[in-house]
């Protein structure tokens, strides 16, 4: 298909005995904001390194904008932007020096592509001459994004850009990504936070090197067809133990203030409340709830 920015065909990679990714197939459309959702060690970074031509897969192949990641890696490197998982800029260079450096090694200048980063860079401008290691987490991420964008890439690979960043900066970051999408850039972003899934157009859930599911975030959650309740009481730990003893409760997991209980289809909230009451729980609250991406993830694992 010509409309795909990224095509991943049956890619596997292992390091010695450790399998990082196995049999991954994935197509990402041009201009899509695609999320790779999964925990650390799930294979996200390996996949990113293969797609950015840093790593050769053991089997399979990947095509980015029509370029093979192994054979055409030189051409590929000119058109992609990559932001690795860890903060990977030079801590002892200033904001401006970092940006200028990355512009130069991509054979361009800040002025030439300033329109692309303007929105983001205005926030950094006051700290222009500050060393990168003296920036806050959110500011560092913004600088890293600017550096990844400065050569006007067609496809942007962002490996866990929101890890270790506070909620406000995370929110801002997603706004920036959506704006970049408006400019026609294909964005592949990974995150360990399930709650960020809804920010993407489509997501792939990845765990232990395998893709568990690919769909839009709403389709992923609405595809959860089991009966689910959110339950809480005054004693969380006892609640957890008690719920696990109930024969009709198939699965009970802590979910913030609540326990999420997957049950047989004919169970009602009142029934659960009644049983808990008889076991001595107080301030009981039981309500049917819709699944989150995290529920789906737990169910698939």
């Amino acid at each position: 298909m010509v409309n795909n920015a990224i095509e991943i065909n049956n890619i596997s990679k292992s390091y010695g005995d450790v399998t990082a990714v196995t049999g991954v197939n994935l197509n990402i459309a041009k201009g899509e904001l695609f999320g790779l959702i999964g925990p650390d060690g799930g294979g996200k970074t390996t996949l990113f390194q293969i797609l950015t031509s840093l790593l050769i897969p053991d089997t399979g192949h990947a095509i980015v904008e029509g370029l093979d990641t192994v054979k055409d890696f030189r051409k590929l490197r000119k058109i992609i932007g990559y932001m690795p998982g860890r903060f990977s800029l030079y801590p002892d260079l200033s904001v401006h020096e970092n940006l200028e450096f990355f512009a130069t090694i991509f054979n361009t200048t800040i002025e030439k592509n300033y329109h692309l980063i303007e929105d983001i860079y205005v926030q950094l401008e006051p700290f222009k001459s500050r060393r990168a290691d003296k920036l806050s987490g959110g500011m560092k991420q913004k600088l890293a994004l600017c550096c990844a964008l400065i050569h006007q890439p067609v496809v942007l690979f962002l490996d866990e850009p929101t890890t270790g960043v506070d909620a406000v900066s995370r929110e801002e970051f997603w706004v920036m990504l959506k704006r970049l999408k408006q400019k026609g850039i294909t964005i592949l972003v990974s995150t360990p936070y399930m709650d960020e899934a809804s920010q993407c157009e489509r997501i792939a859930l990845i765990q232990d090197g395998r893709i568990l599911q690919v769909n839009t975030p709403t389709a992923v959650t609405s595809g959860f067809d089991k009966t689910l309740f959110a339950v809480r009481s005054d004693d969380s730990y006892k609640l957890l133990l008690d719920l696990r003893t109930l024969p009709f409760a198939k699965r009970t997991e802590p979910f913030g203030e609540y326990m999420h209980v997957t049950t047989e289809p004919d169970v009602t909230a009142e029934y659960i409340a009644q049983i808990l009451n008889s076991r001595g729980h107080k301030s009981i609250e039981v309500k049917p709830t819709s699944a989150t991406v995290e529920d789906v993830f737990l169910d698939l694992m």
Partner: peptide, 13 residues
């Protein structure tokens, strides 16, 4: 170690 080598390698340099 800091990961910046990856950035240099994915550049056309």
């Amino acid at each position: 170690e800091t990961g910046t080598m990856d950035l240099l390698l994915v550049s056309p340099v």
